[in-house]
Design a protein around this nucleic acid. Structure first.
Length: 448
RNA sequence: GUGGCCAUGGUGUAAUGGUAACACAGCAGGUUGUGGUCCUGUUAUCACGGGUUCAAUUCCCGUUGGCCACCCCA
């Protein structure tokens, strides 16, 4: 029992005698829209991460990690200059050398860039990749929306067959479903660039006919991105939408048959999906198939639909980024939102239980316990400890909190005898065992 | 980017123009040999800055942050 130990314990609380009683340093809070994912939240996150990886791996996807910082031009060209993401949500900065860089707002552009710059064309096609990591968008924080958020995504590059589109919708559905959510897929086809140009013209002239009902914001979008108006929740727009031209009617034969095949494959998978003729995604690289995965979400007003992820085909992206013509299709899921939904649905991961807690008493006991803990660890037994605590009582409290099934107590006496006490935390019964045989005793107890 | 609401210990809350109460969690202890109950102690210059006032945690303004809606999206 050294006084030193007592000092250490109190150190964090003790105030510097010389310092003024006032705290002059302001506490630092996280930057707006950023947050910590705490240890207590990690098991749920891990459950989500593990499910994503499990299913992607089963479908033959391999992991890729791309940098979080890219040239701003990658996103301007890839995602689209006039998208909201690029226009007002990117964290962009210039380096001293004059490079214009951005924190990635999404993953697909980077993956395609990597495919091109690493010459993955020479790999057996298609190349199937998954990624997981933080994305950054400078948007106003809100429910299920952060400035740093986490996405998991899958990309299939080098394959144009419609079955791939269906598979990706299936995979995104499966991940959510197997986590315990009840997702639905909403799907549409937005055809080729040419189709969209023609459709946009028709849409704009239709909307012009209702110009008086459009908000200022929507009037502006009439010129730049008229299709986005269809996303609006404005009741006036919803009404106008009902009569608006639908892009399906403008699809060329190739797009039409591609889409029909996607739907046919989807029919085979039992994925619940809805055709949404007005589904448009916020990124320019999409062509033909687009889809979103969403769940019903309860909020104060009643319920709304919350998108947990989305994706689609991006056959033109490679060329826009300077690669050769390469088809691609993919999706991404919002991990933060999935975690939030799981919490709302009260879905919890299985708790990892401590099998055995190693308690010690006295200096000799502590030293022996250190060795025993390591033996247990090597034997693959999940163990707990609180070696810095002196009192056995405090240690038992920790053992109890950790919900340990058993506790081993090694004190002065046990060290001398070459024994250890093993205690059943449930019943409170305990017995003396040979310390040499700790591992086999524990195995025996846990085995039954 | 626009608008609304909010800001008290680690967490959740309470009260009050005269410096704060409760619950839970944490730590220590109830004579370093034993947990889940109990008891004791301990843990807040009331987000930050300024103003009004004899006096502000309480009123006002600003800042920062949070929540929510719009916009948009994951």
């Amino acid at each position: 029992m050294s006084p030193m130990r007592k000092d250490t314990r109190k150190a964090p609380v003790k105030k510097d005698a010389d310092a003024s009683p006032k705290r002059t340093v302001h506490p630092i809070s996280p930057v707006r829209g950023m947050r910590d994912i705490l240890p207590s939240e990690q098991p749920l996150w891990n459950m989500v991460r593990a499910k994503c990886i499990e299913i992607a791996s089963a479908y033959g996807f391999e992991r890729i990690d791309t940098p979080m910082v890219e040239e701003t031009g990658l996103f301007v060209r890839g995602v689209g200059k006039y998208t909201d993401i690029v226009e007002k949500e990117m964290y962009s900065f210039e380096t001293e050398g004059g490079s214009k860089l951005s924190l990635r707002p999404e993953g697909t552009a980077s993956v395609m860039r990597s495919y091109i710059s690493n010459g993955m064309v020479s790999l057996p096609q298609p190349v199937k990749l998954w990624y997981m990591g933080p994305m950054f968008r400078h948007d106003r924080p809100q429910h299920g929306r952060y400035r740093q958020f986490y996405q998991f995504g899958c990309e299939v590059i080098g394959e144009e067959d419609a079955v791939t589109d269906a598979q990706l919708a299936l995979i995104s559905y499966l991940i959510l479903k197997e986590l315990g959510l009840k997702p639905t897929i909403r799907i549409n086809s937005i055809g080729t660039t040419e189709t969209r140009t023609n459709y946009k013209n028709a849409l704009v002239s239709y909307l012009r006919g209702h110009r008086s009902k459009l908000s200022e914001e929507d009037k502006k979008r009439l010129l730049r991105s008229p299709m986005r108006i269809l996303d609006s929740k404005d009741p006036a727009i919803v009404e106008i939408k009902a009569e608006a031209p639908q892009i399906v009617d403008w699809l060329d034969e190739r797009s039409k048959s591609h889409f029909m095949r996607v739907l046919e494959y989807l029919d085979e998978t039992n994925v619940p999906y809805q055709l949404d003729p007005y589904l448009v995604r916020g990124l320019d690289y999409y062509a033909d198939t687009v889809f979103e995965a969403y769940v019903e979400h309860e909020d104060e007003q009643g319920h709304a639909q919350l998108a947990l992820g989305g994706g689609g085909r991006y056959d033109g992206l490679s060329e826009v980024l300077g690669g050769r013509e390469t088809p691609g299709t993919g999706f991404s899921l919002g991990l933060d939102r999935i975690v939030a939904q799981l919490r709302e649905s009260d879905i919890k991961p299985e708790k990892k239980q401590v099998d055995i807690f190693v308690a010690q008493l006295g200096e000799q006991g502590r030293k022996k316990a250190l060795a025993v803990f390591e033996e247990l660890r090597k034997a693959g037994i999940v163990s707990g400890e609180a070696f810095a605590k002196d009192s056995i009582r405090a240690q038992m409290e920790v053992a109890n909190r950790q919900e340990a099934k058993f506790a081993i107590v090694i004190g002065q006496k046990e060290v001398l005898d070459g024994t250890a006490i093993i205690r059943d935390m449930e019943s409170g019964t305990q017995e003396i065992i040979d310390v040499q045989k700790v591992i086999q005793e524990v195995h025996k107890k846990l085995g039954k």
